[in-house]
């Protein structure tokens, strides 16, 4: 059995739109990572540099 013979086959348009959605999801996840990183820095504030070792 090969993947091309069984399962749902996407039309060219469906595949194109899925690719666009995947890019949008990837960008959103990237933005979320960046957001949590920036907010972590904001919440820690200047204290981030003066923690005891």
């Amino acid at each position: 059995m090969t993947g091309e013979e069984k399962g749902i086959k996407l039309t060219e348009e469906q595949a194109k739109r899925r690719r666009a959605r995947s890019v949008a999801i990837a960008l959103t996840l990237g933005a979320l990572v960046l957001l949590f990183y920036v907010v972590t820095i904001v919440k820690m504030g200047p204290q981030i540099m003066s923690r005891p070792l």
């Binding site: 399962g7 348009e13 469906q14 739109r17 666009a20």
Partner: peptide
């Protein structure tokens, strides 16, 4: 039925 696997979903654009 693998002969009729046209799927109507997944047509939404961003």
């Amino acid at each position: 039925d693998t002969e009729s696997l046209a799927w109507s979903g997944g047509m939404g654009s961003v």
